[in-house]
Design a protein around this nucleic acid. Structure first.
Lengths: 326, 326
DNA sequence: CTGAAAGCGCTAACAC
DNA sequence: GTGTTAGCGCTTTCAG
């Protein structure tokens, strides 16, 4: 930086200002500095800048795994939104382990990230306090709670399940069933799904919860088990579209018509939902929008004047996508 | 840090050493410092450490988009591998735009990342020089070239196409066809596929290249076009499994048996490949292994004594996964 | 609009 | 084993 300053015939501060607040400089000075930067191929050391300004312009984001398409979408949008605001994303994966989450938060705090994005609302013990004490903005995503750490953007899995139930019941189905995974979100969807059934006064809703990672090969035995429990099931809500597509293939194998013999509903509106035959009726969660919103909430807070702002919770909801399978 | 030092009755360096090289300390001193750290809830400022040591312990990785499952897998494995070595991942997305790639490399260099992972082998102009001049280790991924920037781990798309052709021809098919996308990798696969056909002395291989983003709804017209060109096609190689699954559904709609009337081969061995009926014969690229290898190459270089090492190119190949569709 | 001085919080190198 | 000294490369005051 001092080389640039010397070449442009100005002081260090001026070079700094040419980079960070160009409007404050006389246009001549500015272009002189810019020339020097160009000439020397100077690349400012952002680490030094971060240390001096105590703003890292980095946001830390944690997902259970990035290779889950729904989280990938959110991270994609988040990266883009933050990038437009001049922020970079530091990625962490918890692999669904609480101690990894704990460790990652320490790393994030150690790097003095300017904000943190978390997936879900259940976290490692102590993490909540730690983050709140740090004072940096936090956004939790992909779920809903009345008691967020700070900000929140997600949707209610219970509501989603209820919506699926309502739709299927509205179409005249009376023997509902569910295939999901052994994890919280899936259970909440099931709960909402059953609540809809109960509200309509229809009987028990048998469910199969597959141990994660739920693979497609688990579909056949799960369906077998459901049919064994309730031979007359006529509508099946699956925890995700891949599972639902597996059910479609399985129905084809059994010679069951869809939705004639069995109505099938997925969750997620993944690409496969349109590729399948029949196309899947499903629930769409706008994963990109979650990332966008989370990014915007952070940028807003970071641009703010520093006074503590009211907590924000955004419910982006789920959308019913009616196609052919139900 | 000075609070910790005071509380433990030692100097600053000792605290630093307790964190970074605990073996150098007497066990009493160490536990005294650790107690103080615990008590005060001290979180070391890694930014300051980076500046002082000129090692950031951050690796920058660039993908076209993280919401493409194959890149997500690589990034997942890379994050894990680097994490085990104490490195964090800074994520950048190019959205397939050269200027974004350029800008991101500047950000990475500005942050003084200790290494860079790139996707693909064709880059923004000047990027190659810039990186080589910086002297930091670079790994290119997901492709093959005889002239890498530094290190390389990927596979040959041409070889993959050839392998697919060879397999289908070996099964007695004689009228091959291809559905792909209008992008380099797809074209290279087609080239290899055609080379195999040529080597076997069979006729022209009609191809449909869909403009990205290739969606499932494009399958029907593409198949129509191929059949119009060559009514007798008996084997179809698809650029990815989703496309192949679309073809399966389309065949079901037409009443074509698979692989009886048409053998269908995919690429990628995505989850859908096992979920479909019939299950897809496909080529598997071990995306996770690419990430792992890239991470390990970097860690090796970063642990090295600093002497320039020979460039490394790893061809992880593709694997033929024979199932039912071909 | 520009500059001088004083750190940001840590680590490297060298002593003891 | 531990401490002292001198920065890392920038930004933030505060002057002018």
């Amino acid at each position: 930086m001092s080389d640039v300053a010397a070449a442009a015939g100005v002081s260090l501060v001026t070079v700094s200002r040419a980079i960070n607040s160009p409007d404050q400089l006389a246009s001549e000075t500015l272009s002189a500095v810019r020339n020097a930067i160009e000439q020397l191929g100077y690349v400012p050391n952002l680490t030094a800048g971060s240390l001096a300004s105590s703003r890292s312009r980095i946001v830390g984001a944690m997902v259970p795994t990035i290779s889950n398409a729904v989280f990938a979408e959110t991270i994609e949008a988040l990266t883009q939104t933050l990038g437009e605001g001049g922020y970079q994303l530091l990625l962490g994966q918890t692999s669904y382990r609480a101690d990894d989450e704990q460790r990652l938060v320490d790393v994030f705090l150690g790097r003095r990230v300017d904000g943190v994005v978390l997936t879900g609302i259940t976290h490692a013990p102590g993490l909540r306090d730690r983050l709140q004490r740090s004072g940096i903005p936090v956004v939790e995503t992909w779920d809903m709670t009345g008691r967020p750490i700070d900000m929140l953007v997600g949707f209610s899995n219970r509501d989603a399940g209820y919506l699926a139930g309502e739709y299927l019941l509205g179409r005249g189905h009376r023997q509902l069933a569910f295939i999901g995974a052994q994890e919280d979100r899936s259970r909440q969807r099931l709960e909402g799904f059953r609540a809809a059934a109960e509200a309509a006064g229809v009987g028990a809703v048998p469910a199969q919860l597959i141990a994660p990672p739920a693979a497609m090969v688990d579909v056949r035995p799960a369906l077998d088990a459901l049919v064994a429990q309730a031979p007359g099931i006529d509508a099946l809500f699956c925890n995700n579209d891949l599972l639902a597509a597996g059910v479609l293939f399985e129905c084809a194998r059994r010679g069951w018509s869809v939705p004639g013999r069995l109505a099938v509903m997925g969750f997620g509106d993944q690409p496969i939902a349109q590729a399948s035959f029949p196309q899947l009726t499903t629930l769409r969660v706008h994963g990109r929008r979650i990332g966008e919103q989370a990014g915007q909430l952070l940028l807003g807070r970071l641009a703010g004047t520093g006074e503590p702002q009211a907590a924000t919770a955004v419910d982006i909801g789920v959308e019913l996508v009616v196609r052919d399978s139900a």
